[in-house]
Computed example of a mutant assay.
Amino acid sequence: MTELIPAPAVLVAAADSWSRELLGQLVLNVRCDADVQYVGDGPQAIEALRQQPFALALVEQELPLADGLDVLRAARQMRRGEAFILISSRADAASVRAALPLAPTAYLIKPFNAENLRQRLQKLLLVPGQEVVCDLPSMNPQTSLQDFLRTARDSTDGAPLMDGVELAARRCLNAEECVLADLENEFGRDPQITACLIAAANSAAQHVGMSCQTLAQALARLGLTQALNLALGVSLQRAAQLDEPLLKQSAEQFWDLSQRCADSAQTLALALGADAPRCYTAGLLHCLGELALLRSLQDWCNGGGELDEDEIEGCLRELGAGFGSALRARWRLPLELRELIAAAYGVSAGVFSREALILNLAASAVRMPQEQRGELLESKAARMLGLKSAQRRLLEAL
Rank of each mutant, 00 (worst) to 15 (best):
L294M: 11
D256G: 09
Y345V: 03
A276V: 04
E47Q: 14
Q266M: 12
Y107K: 02
A91Y: 05
Q130T: 07
F323K: 03
Q241W: 09
A114I: 02
Q298I: 01
L136W: 14
A15F: 00
L125S: 04
R338W: 02
Q259T: 09
A356P: 00
E309W: 09
Q77D: 14
G273H: 15
L284A: 05
M210L: 12
R278A: 15
K110Q: 13
Q142C: 03
S258C: 07
S250L: 10
S138Q: 13
A271M: 12
A14P: 01
S296V: 04
L232C: 00
L126H: 11
R338L: 01
E309I: 00
P111W: 08
S353N: 01
L377C: 13
A204C: 10
L236K: 07
A181P: 00
A15W: 03
N29Q: 11
Y107T: 00
S364E: 09
M384G: 04
L108N: 10
A349Q: 13
A98P: 00
E47S: 15
Q213R: 15
A271Q: 10
Q37P: 05
L219S: 03
L385G: 06
L285N: 04
L56N: 05
R317M: 02
N174V: 01
Q119P: 03
V234I: 14
A195D: 08
A381E: 10
A45I: 06
L63G: 05
A265G: 14
R221K: 14
Q77T: 07
A365W: 03
D35C: 04
L242S: 10
S211I: 01
A329F: 12
D256S: 15
C172Y: 11
R354D: 14
D275I: 02
Q51N: 10
L376F: 09
E21I: 00
R170D: 02
G273D: 15
Q249V: 03
D147Q: 14
Y107I: 03
A326R: 12
R238V: 02
A159M: 07
A251C: 12
L63A: 05
G40N: 09
E62M: 12
Q44E: 15
L180D: 11
L100S: 07
L291K: 04
T225M: 11
L340E: 12
D275K: 13
N185V: 11
A240H: 03
L173P: 08
L167A: 15
T267C: 14
L294F: 07
R31C: 00
G350M: 12
G42A: 09
A292E: 07
